[in-house]
């Protein structure tokens, strides 16, 4: 019965609720973006998909340019390499997690 009157309590209701949620572990920031915690299989498949899709786009652009300019296989070879690089970049970003896209580019 020694509770101080509500108005005299230092924190607002929001702050106390926040503190209680923190104690109960309900404010989990740990939920990873993009499908929750993934199994090794899941990570592997996602990374593989990222590489393959970037490669596919690269090959597609290369073939389209070659078809347009009749330079086959010049652009195919060029964009195959660029597509591979983009795939590696995708996986790199996937592994970094999000929000670090530019900050890392600036650092490096």
């Amino acid at each position: 019965m020694d509770d101080p009157p509500r108005a005299e309590r230092p924190e607002s209701f929001e702050e106390r609720l926040q503190a209680a949620r923190d104690r109960a572990g309900l404010n989990g920031k740990g939920e990873a973006a993009g499908g929750g915690r993934a199994s090794p299989w899941g990570i592997g498949l996602r990374a593989g998909l990222e590489v393959v899709s970037a490669l596919a786009v690269g090959v597609g652009i290369g073939l389209a340019l070659d078809w347009w300019l009749a330079t086959r296989p010049l652009f195919l070879v060029l964009f195959l390499v660029l597509g591979g690089a983009a795939g590696v970049l995708n996986v790199y970003r996937l592994m970094l997690g999000r929000g670090t896209r530019r900050s890392n580019a600036e650092r490096g």
């Binding site: 998909l49 970037a54 596919a56 690269g58 964009f79 983009a86 995708n90 580019a105």
Partner: peptide, 29 residues
Amino acid sequence: PEGAPVALAPIIIPVEIISYLSRVVSLSV
């Protein structure tokens, strides 16, 4: 990206564009 050497632009820009376009492929596949 800001601050990247301009000399690398011919490589970085196509790679970034391919990476951006690959979203369609990876999302749908």
